[in-house]
């Protein structure tokens, strides 16, 4: 039975491959579907993941080619706003054959499931990935209850 499932899986793999080939033909074709990367995906904002680690929340965002200085994060209670600008890195004196990586400014705001301690938020930018660690406020942290 497993081998059959693998066959189906491979078929989907082949379809994905076709889709990514098509994407190369039509830059905008089907961009919003699946894992394909594109700046146009969510109305100009970067893709994000959010994880709940109990003591803190973690938001991870894909921001390739955005300098640290061009990113800003604002937090108030359970509201987080990530904004930034991607500037052109087109070199001087070159002819452009293909330009797919757009320049853009974006703002994305999130309503977090709990309030976070804005003072203790840590944000790190590495390899085009922004990681924000957002410690929850004391009241929102999970508590161990001792049973008497």
């Amino acid at each position: 039975m497993w081998t059959r499932i693998n066959d189906i899986d491979r078929m989907f793999g082949a379809m994905n491959l076709l889709r990514s080939r098509m994407n190369r033909l039509f830059t905008d074709f089907d961009r919003s579907y699946g894992d394909d990367y594109g700046w146009k995906v969510i109305s100009g904002g970067p893709k994000t993941n959010m994880y709940d680690l109990g003591e803190k929340l973690q938001i991870v965002a894909e921001v390739p080619g955005v300098a640290k200085e061009d990113l800003s994060v604002r937090i108030q209670g359970n509201y987080l706003e990530l904004s930034g600008a991607r500037k052109s890195d087109a070199p001087e004196g070159y002819r452009a054959h293909r330009v797919e990586r757009g320049t853009t400014t974006f703002t994305r705001s999130f309503t977090l499931p709990t309030d976070v301690d804005a003072e203790k938020v840590a944000a790190e930018l590495k390899d085009g990935i922004l990681t924000m660690d957002l410690p929850k406020v004391e009241a929102a942290k999970p508590k161990q209850i001792t049973i008497r």
Binding site: S20, Y37, H97, R98
Partner: peptide, 11 residues
């Protein structure tokens, strides 16, 4: 999943 990265090409 295989993703084709977006590229710019200059010459």
């Amino acid at each position: 999943s295989i993703v084709a990265p977006l590229v710019d090409i200059y010459e």
